[in-house]
Computed example of a mutant assay.
Amino acid sequence: MGTSQDSAWDVHLFFTPDYLEFGNEKQKSLHSDLSNHKIISKLSGFYPLVAGTIPLGIDTESSDVDLLTYHNNPNHLIKIAYAKFRHYSDFKYETKDIDGESTVIISFRTNLFFYEIFSQKIKPGNQKGFLHMVLEKRFLDLADSDFKNQIIEKKKQGIKTEPAFCEVLGLEGDPYQTLLDLGNSSDEKLVEILKSKHIGLK
């Protein structure tokens, strides 16, 4: 899964949205919205995982909800999504090539959240967006609250999540690849990075 074995946090907690029920107010609200609209169950054949900033508690007012899914046939996913979600506000879908992968992006809005389904022929637990989120979670768990606040401030400035982490951590290169490359690093390595930028630890 691209995570170190010595981390105390269990990556499997992200495999279902149950943890959201016990989180902050935004996470609890998301858990209720997912349940009320049966969004996860409507996508059950596509291995849906909730990703993005809300699970990490670094969201801003403009943050949407990312849902990572797997498809074998993109047209099948679009057909199911059209049947299940076309009645929602701002429903739309598109297909594009991302990193050489056929990708389907479907979006819609409930009264509370804007959802974006990101689907590839890669199981969600192995998709880059999920691996980035897991590493970001590890950094957030190791660092003090000031680090989290710095990330949120970058987000409020309109900087995307991966670049925001790399800016605060002083990591160079392509942010998306840099975080991916760090995925197998030990906690000790992550602590070294935090200390090098004089970021406090928990």
Rank of each mutant, 00 (worst) to 15 (best):
residue 78 I to K: 02
residue 79 K to D: 13
residue 79 K to E: 08
residue 80 I to F: 08
residue 81 A to I: 01
residue 81 A to L: 03
residue 82 Y to M: 05
residue 82 Y to D: 11
residue 82 Y to S: 09
residue 83 A to G: 08
residue 83 A to F: 11
residue 85 F to M: 08
residue 86 R to V: 08
residue 86 R to F: 07
residue 88 Y to Q: 10
residue 90 D to Y: 10
residue 91 F to A: 05
residue 91 F to W: 03
residue 91 F to L: 08
residue 92 K to T: 01
residue 92 K to Y: 00
residue 94 E to T: 05
residue 96 K to T: 04
residue 97 D to L: 14
residue 97 D to T: 06
residue 97 D to C: 08
residue 98 I to G: 02
residue 98 I to A: 03
residue 100 G to I: 01
residue 101 E to L: 13
residue 101 E to Y: 15
residue 101 E to N: 13
residue 102 S to Q: 10
residue 102 S to G: 01
residue 102 S to Y: 02
residue 103 T to Q: 01
residue 105 I to G: 01
residue 105 I to L: 13
residue 107 S to L: 04
residue 107 S to D: 04
residue 107 S to E: 09
residue 108 F to K: 08
residue 109 R to T: 12
residue 110 T to K: 12
residue 112 L to K: 11
residue 112 L to W: 03
residue 112 L to D: 13
residue 112 L to N: 12
residue 112 L to H: 09
residue 113 F to T: 06
residue 113 F to Y: 07
residue 113 F to C: 07
residue 113 F to D: 00
residue 113 F to W: 05
residue 113 F to V: 06
residue 115 Y to E: 05
residue 115 Y to C: 00
residue 116 E to Q: 15
residue 116 E to D: 15
residue 116 E to P: 10
residue 117 I to W: 07
residue 117 I to R: 04
residue 117 I to G: 04
residue 119 S to K: 07
residue 119 S to C: 12
residue 119 S to L: 07
residue 120 Q to N: 01
residue 121 K to E: 14
residue 122 I to D: 14
residue 122 I to M: 12
residue 122 I to P: 14
residue 123 K to V: 07
residue 124 P to Y: 10
residue 124 P to G: 14
residue 125 G to S: 11
residue 125 G to Y: 12
residue 127 Q to T: 00
residue 128 K to Q: 10
residue 128 K to Y: 02
residue 129 G to L: 02
residue 129 G to N: 05
residue 130 F to M: 10
residue 130 F to K: 15
residue 131 L to W: 06
residue 132 H to D: 13
residue 134 V to E: 06
residue 136 E to L: 02
residue 137 K to Y: 11
residue 138 R to W: 07
residue 139 F to A: 12
residue 140 L to C: 14
residue 141 D to Q: 15
residue 141 D to A: 10
residue 142 L to R: 10
residue 142 L to S: 07
residue 144 D to T: 13
residue 144 D to L: 14
residue 144 D to H: 15
residue 146 D to N: 14
residue 147 F to P: 13
residue 147 F to Q: 03
residue 148 K to Y: 11
residue 148 K to C: 12
residue 149 N to C: 00
residue 151 I to L: 11
residue 152 I to A: 06
residue 154 K to C: 15
residue 154 K to T: 00
residue 154 K to S: 09
residue 155 K to N: 03
residue 156 K to T: 06
residue 157 Q to N: 00
residue 157 Q to P: 02
residue 158 G to Q: 14
residue 159 I to W: 08
residue 159 I to A: 01
residue 159 I to E: 04
residue 161 T to Y: 03
residue 162 E to W: 09
residue 163 P to E: 02
residue 164 A to M: 07
residue 164 A to V: 07
residue 165 F to I: 14
residue 165 F to V: 13
residue 166 C to A: 06
residue 166 C to V: 09
residue 167 E to Q: 15
residue 167 E to I: 13
residue 167 E to C: 08
residue 167 E to M: 08
residue 168 V to Y: 13
residue 168 V to L: 14
residue 169 L to W: 02
residue 169 L to Y: 04
residue 170 G to S: 08
residue 170 G to V: 01
residue 170 G to D: 01
residue 171 L to S: 00
residue 171 L to D: 06
residue 172 E to G: 00
residue 174 D to I: 04
residue 176 Y to V: 00
residue 177 Q to I: 05
residue 179 L to F: 10
residue 181 D to L: 14
residue 181 D to Q: 15
residue 181 D to A: 12
residue 182 L to H: 11
residue 183 G to W: 01
residue 183 G to Q: 05
residue 183 G to K: 09
residue 183 G to H: 09
